[in-house]
Design a protein around this nucleic acid. Structure first.
Lengths: 152, 152
DNA sequence: CTATTCCCTATTAGTCCGATAGGCTTAAAG
DNA sequence: CTTTAAGCCTATCGGACTAATAGGGAATAG
């Protein structure tokens, strides 16, 4: 299960990305629409701003807007901001690699192999799909349906 | 990241499943081989026994053996014993469904849709691959390579 | 100048993780 | 029948994290 914090972040991002260009959304408005504790949401939006995803305007008629285009912000990126590394094992994380103390041989570790597969599959979605995709409901091209055009 | 507890459980299961039929493995032996705190491991093996996956023999020359064949025990099943529901959102769990309080319309929820895809992809590995597969290194048939023989 | 909105930090209750501890029960070996 | 090696069971505990709550400070439009 992902944390409430991360889920609220997605809720807010989708709302902000869905509003017309140039128009700002306030934290209070988002909190009201989705029943999110207001002060809690403020912290979350602050994190998203510090991560360079949102921009904010203070004072009356202030609020939040996207800093980067919504189709450059993947679900994986946002998730990592609030949950840390997504890898199921420390030895599978690139950004936070650690050896497992109970591992005899990483190269032959069955646990690593199987969870590596699960992680790859999960990442194929999370690191590919963006907030923009989700909003426009761009059909998801699962790898097992995807025509791979890299080669030609 | 999965918990140490779950990782130790896999380590133990793989060790037990890999020993010749009829031969029991002691918790002390496993703890020594993999640097796992012994008393902690005991609790884990107890959980696996209560879940009907392992059988145990007490007293001198006792130990643990598989109760069910190792190729009927999936990674997903074991994971659920120690981590609870694997679904990334409460509204995606069949065994522990809960509505998200910040959700306006579940049917149109973009978060649910995208995480549903990630969950499906992950489950395609975790609920398919078994301890037995992992030991024999049965090649993983990713869905995007798999020949589907259901229809004919 | 005032209302509105974002910005920042501290605190807190509760839960979970990762062990550690201590003793009880069972059973094979001598 | 005693010893010894195993599993069985419950309690406890420090530390980290989650999900808020709280209280104000700073900027800015009108």
């Amino acid at each position: 299960m992902i944390s409430n914090k991360a889920r609220y972040a997605f809720r807010a991002l989708l709302a902000i990305a869905a509003t017309p260009e140039g128009e700002a959304v306030t934290s209070a408005e988002i909190a009201r629409r989705y029943n999110i504790p207001h002060k809690f949401l403020e912290q979350i939006l602050l994190d998203l701003r510090k991560a360079g995803i949102l921009d904010s305007k203070r004072g009356k008629s202030g609020g939040y807007v996207m800093l980067r285009p919504s189709d450059t912000v993947s679900f994986g990126e946002v998730l990592r901001i609030f949950e840390g590394p997504l890898a199921p094992l420390p030895c599978l994380s690139r950004q936070a690699y650690r050896r497992c103390e109970d591992c005899v041989s990483e190269a032959q570790c069955e646990i690593r192999r199987e969870f590596g597969r699960a992680y790859d599959a999960s990442r194929a979605v999370l690191d590919t799909r963006t907030i923009g995709d989700a909003l426009s409901d761009t059909p998801y091209n699962a790898p097992w349906h995807r025509e791979d055009r890299r080669a030609s």
